[in-house]
Simulated scan of single mutants.
Amino acid sequence: MFKVGDKVVYPMHGAGIIESIEEREVLGEKSQYYVMHLPVGNMKLFIPLNNVENLGLRQVISPTMVKDVIEVLKTKDTATTLAWNRRYRANLEKIKSGNIFEVANVVRSLAQRENEKGLSTGEKKMYENACQILISELVLTEGSEEEAVRQRLSSALILA
């Protein structure tokens, strides 16, 4: 169970801070919810406590793991070329996993594909979403500014 002030990641949305735990009535049923603020994108989420495990909520990574994430971005993608719909589904599953290394893998492979052949509209949106998720976690992990993290990611991707 998380507590107020914890920095957590909600897959498909990104990293945020638990601001409070509140009881809310939804459809006539009272439940406890984490109130989570996502600083990157300035969004507030209500996450039911009884569904936290299914949703994949987890603590943000430790600061020592950041360099490993950056290394994933710097490596050359060696994945086989799949049809766009299979590639899209595979990348979506990686993002849904909530694993920061899988999200970094998606960012890297889509950035490299963009440079080589371009991305479809759906893949561009996925790329932006994956970047936002990755940036939000690194911002909270390091206490850095969003723009500084964004520039570091761009620099790492250029090296790949």
Rank of each mutant, 00 (worst) to 15 (best):
R113D: 14
K117P: 03
V35E: 08
M65K: 15
L82I: 09
N54V: 13
H37M: 01
S154H: 13
S20N: 09
E123C: 04
A79H: 13
G122I: 06
P39D: 04
M126V: 07
L38G: 03
L38V: 07
V4I: 15
D6W: 06
S120N: 08
F2I: 02
K7M: 01
N51P: 11
R108L: 09
R150I: 02
E146K: 10
M1N: 02
K30A: 08
N105Q: 10
R89A: 08
V8A: 01
E53Y: 13
Y127K: 10
G98M: 02
I100T: 02
L57T: 08
K125A: 13
S20P: 00
G5K: 00
E146W: 01
K76A: 08
R150H: 06
K7V: 00
L157G: 06
V107S: 06
L82N: 10
I133R: 05
R86Y: 15
R113V: 14
E93R: 13
V106M: 08
E116M: 13
L159N: 12
K7Q: 01
N99H: 11
K124H: 12
Q112M: 11
L55V: 03
R89H: 06
E128R: 08
K96M: 12
L153F: 05
V106L: 11
E142D: 04
V139C: 08
I135M: 10
K67Q: 13
E114L: 13
K74Y: 07
P11L: 12
E102M: 07
I17K: 05
V149K: 04
V8K: 00
V139M: 10
V40T: 15
V72Y: 05
G5S: 00
E128P: 05
L157K: 01
R89K: 13
W84A: 07
V103W: 01
T81R: 12
N42L: 00
E147S: 11
K3F: 05
M43L: 15
N115Q: 15
D77N: 15
Y10R: 04
G143D: 02
M36Q: 10
I100Q: 02
K44N: 09
V66W: 03
G41H: 03
V72F: 02
C131A: 10
I158S: 14
I95L: 10
M43S: 11
R87L: 05
V8E: 00
L157R: 03
D68T: 12
S144M: 08
V103A: 03
S155I: 14
A156V: 04
K7I: 00
P11F: 13
L73D: 09
I61W: 10
M12A: 12
N91M: 11
V26D: 02
A104C: 07
A111L: 00
A83T: 14
Q32C: 01
C131W: 11
W84P: 07
G5I: 00
L159Y: 09
C131Q: 14
T78N: 14
E123L: 11
K94S: 11
G98Q: 01
D6M: 05
H13Y: 15
G41Q: 04
K96N: 12
K7T: 01
S62F: 10
H37Y: 09
N85F: 15
L82A: 11
N50S: 14
L73W: 07
E71N: 12
G122K: 07
F46D: 09
G41D: 02
